[in-house]
Each structure stands twice: as structure tokens, then as C-alpha cells.
Design a protein around this nucleic acid. Structure first.
Lengths: 138, 138
DNA sequence: CGCCTAATTGCAATAGCCTTGCAGGTGCAA
DNA sequence: TTGCACCTGCAAGGCTATTGCAATTAGGCG
């Protein structure tokens, strides 16, 4: 577990258990968007006894502490990823399921436009479409 | 049921049952984004015997025929709305849950920018943030 | 108009995913 | 090392969605 996360947990009075450490490490290592179930299977390869309910409780904790972010990628399922310092949006390919990250400036000022025309303050965009590979194939 | 939907169903050999008619009518009347459960309760006020499984089967049919669109509004739940002729994107307020529609041109060319920089062809955007009412209150 | 048949429905059982209560285990401060 | 409050594993339960099946019914046909 990274120093950062370790300290955050301990400073706030939470215990540093192997389960929490492994969940965090897997999320970091993967770098992508894991479901609770997949995460559980990965952690179990190193710590077979861990239970799915612990995964959910740990994820809830990490989300509340701002260390992990829960995202819904359109399928109805919940995905979890390490909270990045620079916020980003998601491009989800509806054909192959690939997920890419884009930053605010790649949206061509759509956020500013929405604020101006609708008074809507954009935090998070989930963009569905065809990725470059799938668009050219189609 | 509107002439349009009636004909689509019948021309394709599907039966025009009161259950299907009522589901469609409720979706049209509401105009918004209904969950299967809420839709079921509304239909039941006119047709008490209808079962939730019929709601799901009808929604599946209407979605497959392109008459209804399924949207995931971030909460993990499934919502259904009448498929509009002009495609639109969704603004979802993370505080009050309100959903607004925006059209492509309100995104300030973000779609073109994504296509150019990433080769990503945008179909559908789900935009989370604070609506005008909630942003000013916060 | 009534019959016939395959499509459709209601019901109950089931599947997935997630949460919760509780008893036992364990990090960690002293 | 000890103690206890926090955590975890387990099993039960909840909620949403799906499915198998028998009963019902829309709608074509005579």
C-alpha cells in the first residue's frame, strides 16, 4: 500500500488490515475499472480467505475517504478505480467495451458552454460511442 | 397508444395487448425517465393485474424495436424513456437527481474534438454535475 | 360472429448483486 | 503483552431482474 493511503487510513483511526492493503494494491496495480467481484477474485489469489462482503465494506470506506472513485460505466454494474489527482472523464466504447480517460480540456470547452447556457456545473462525463478501432471497422 | 407505435408493433406481427398499450402510454405521458418499478405502479393504477415481469418483457420488446431507449443515469438503476427522433444527451444533477436533456450542439463541438483527437465517435453523453438550482445553493 | 392457435401473460421460482447481523478474530495503543 | 474496539467471515436476507410453465387471449380465418 502506498504511503499516502496508509497514512490516510491510520491518521483517521482506521486499522491497516491485510484485506484493506490488498484491495488497495489491486486497485492501484490494475489502474483500470474493477468490479467488486473481479477485485475479490484477484485478491483471493493472494489471500484466499477474504470474503466479498469485506471487499464491499473496504470499497465503501475507500470511497468515503476519497481514495477510490465509484463509476457507472453504463452497464448497470458498479466499477471502482483509484481516485486520480487530475479529474478525468470516461470514454466507453459501446462495441468493445474499452474504457479510455479524457481530461476536461479535451472536451473543447463543453463544460464552460453548459455552465453558460444551462447554469450546469459539469463534474463528470460518461461518453458512450465507438472507439477508434471499432469505428473504422464498422 | 400512438398510431406510430401501434403500427410498428402490428406490422411486425406482435400483438397489441392492453398491457403493451398501457406501458407505452405511460412512457409517453411521463416524458421522463421511468424505472420498471415506477412504471409498473403507474400502469397498475389503471390495470391492477399487470405483473412486473410483463413490464420488463414489454420494455425489452420496445427497446429492441427502437421505440424506447434504456438509459443508465449513474445510480446503477435502469431507466426507460421514449426514443426521441432528435438524439439528446443527459445532464444529471448529483445533488437533486434532476435530469435534463441537451442536444449535441450545446456541447460546443466536443464531439468533433473527440473524433479528431481520439478517433472517438460520440453517440451518447451522460453528464454529471450540479444543476443551476443546486449550484447556486451550494 | 365464434373458433382456433400461437403469442402473451401472470405467477412463482430463481439468479445476481449487494447489504447486514452477529460471533469470533485481530490491529494497535498503552 | 494485554485489552478492547474495530474488523472480518459467514450466513441470512433484500432488492432487482429473469425464466419456466400453465393459463389466458389477440386476432386471423372460416
Amino acid at each position: 500500500m502506498t504511503h499516502h493511503a496508509t497514512r490516510t487510513l491510520q491518521e483517521l483511526g482506521y486499522r491497516l488490515t491485510p484485506q484493506r492493503t490488498l484491495v488497495w494494491d489491486q486497485l492501484r496495480e490494475d489502474g483500470g475499472h474493477l468490479t467488486a467481484e473481479v477485485l475479490c477474485r484477484r485478491v483471493q489469489s493472494q489471500f484466499p480467505h477474504i470474503n466479498i462482503s469485506t471487499i464491499y465494506r473496504t470499497l465503501e470506506l475507500l470511497v468515503n475517504l476519497g481514495l477510490v472513485k465509484e463509476t457507472h460505466l453504463g452497464s448497470g454494474g458498479r466499477h471502482f478505480e483509484v481516485e486520480e489527482e487530475v479529474p478525468h472523464h470516461h470514454l466507453v466504447c459501446e462495441k468493445c467495451g474499452r474504457v479510455e480517460h479524457v481530461h476536461g480540456e479535451d472536451l473543447n470547452g463543453a463544460d464552460a458552454a453548459l455552465l453558460k447556457t444551462r447554469g450546469f456545473e459539469l463534474h463528470d462525463a460518461l461518453l458512450f460511442g465507438s472507439c477508434s478501432a471499432c469505428a473504422t471497422t464498422a
